[in-house]
Amino acid sequence: MALMSSVPLYDTIGTAYTVTRRTEPRIAAQVLAALGDARTVLNVGAGTGSYEPQDRYVLAVEPSAVMRSQRSAGAAPCLVGSAENLPFDDQSFDAAMAFATLHHWPDPIAGLRELRRVARRVVVFTHDTSEAGWLHRFWLTRDYLPEVADLLVGRPSVTDLADAIGARMEPVLIPWDCADGFFEAYWRQPEAYLDEGVRRGMSVWTSVGPDAERRAVQSLHDDLASGRWAERNRDLAGLDAAELGLRLLIA
């Protein structure tokens, strides 16, 4: 995740986004179920088009030219825009969705209220970044990348986000063989985080900066080589899916 404007960030790091960031079918099924019977869907912060339902009308909004350029020829039409100022009338869509983008919005609560304004249903994939949730539950942030906590200062909690639109929260489990290479995806495949190409598909590494990245990667490399990582995380070995603080907000 990254806590900055997504336009310069993804115009810089998004050039190979489709290589590691693909739709994970099991998570997509959960998003689709949350959308219910919505026939018209607005996808805000749509990126390259992952998780857009194929069986209904979708209109996408994405600020990054680099991300828009990687959308497939068959993807939904995509407009330039931002979540906080959507150019649509009230209740224009059956549903609005936002997937792994909320943490990039300068004002996420204002953005959520815009989604709530233009759609009768809202489905948002985001993180519980509290100390009791994602920060301490995920070994990568807990043991190797504490700098992530600094990125969260001043940001609304997931409870604040849910309360802003009257949403309920639904946990999203991450399968051990997750096809979508987001930050938490390789929780049972730690060697993946040593791969520069894999890391470039995760905006958090750019956000913490090169010094923190080098230190974290070297420490993880050393712990994998010594067996220290395996010993510290032996409870993960038999899990098919992990609860690491990912949430759907459904309103």
Rank of each mutant, 00 (worst) to 15 (best):
V7F: 02
T40M: 12
A16D: 11
D37E: 14
A76K: 04
Y51T: 14
A38Y: 05
P53L: 08
A65G: 09
R68D: 07
P77N: 01
L42T: 05
S64R: 05
A60W: 11
A33L: 07
P25K: 15
V58Q: 01
I13F: 11
G36V: 01
R56Q: 15
M67T: 12
A28T: 05
L42D: 04
R39N: 07
L32F: 13
L3M: 08
R71Q: 00
V41R: 11
S6I: 07
V58E: 03
A65S: 11
P77V: 07
S5H: 11
A29N: 00
L42K: 10
Q70T: 10
G36K: 09
A34F: 06
T15E: 11
S72G: 15
R26P: 10
A46D: 06
R56G: 13
S69W: 07
L9P: 08
Q70F: 05
G47V: 15
V44E: 05
V44P: 00
Y51V: 00
P77G: 02
V61S: 14
S72T: 14
V66G: 03
G14T: 14
G45D: 01
P77R: 10
V31K: 08
A34I: 01
Y10A: 05
V66E: 01
T23E: 09
L3S: 04
L59K: 08
A60Y: 12
A29L: 02
P63T: 04
S5R: 10
Y10V: 02
V41F: 05
L3N: 03
A73E: 02
L59M: 06
T15C: 13
S50T: 13
T48H: 15
V66Y: 03
M4D: 10
R26Q: 07
E52W: 13
L42G: 08
Q54K: 14
G14L: 09
Y17E: 10
R21D: 01
L59A: 07
G45S: 12
S50H: 05
S69Q: 07
V19F: 02
V44N: 14
D55G: 11
T23Y: 06
T20I: 11
Q30V: 08
E24I: 13
S50A: 12
R71T: 01
E52F: 13
G36I: 01
A29F: 02
V58A: 10
A60C: 07
A76V: 10
D37S: 15
V19H: 08
P53Y: 14
V44H: 01
A34Q: 06
E62S: 08
M67E: 06
T48P: 09
I27Q: 09
Q54L: 14
V58D: 04
D11H: 04
A38I: 09
R26H: 12
R68L: 03
D11R: 04
P25Q: 13
D11M: 13
I13P: 00
A16F: 14
R68P: 03
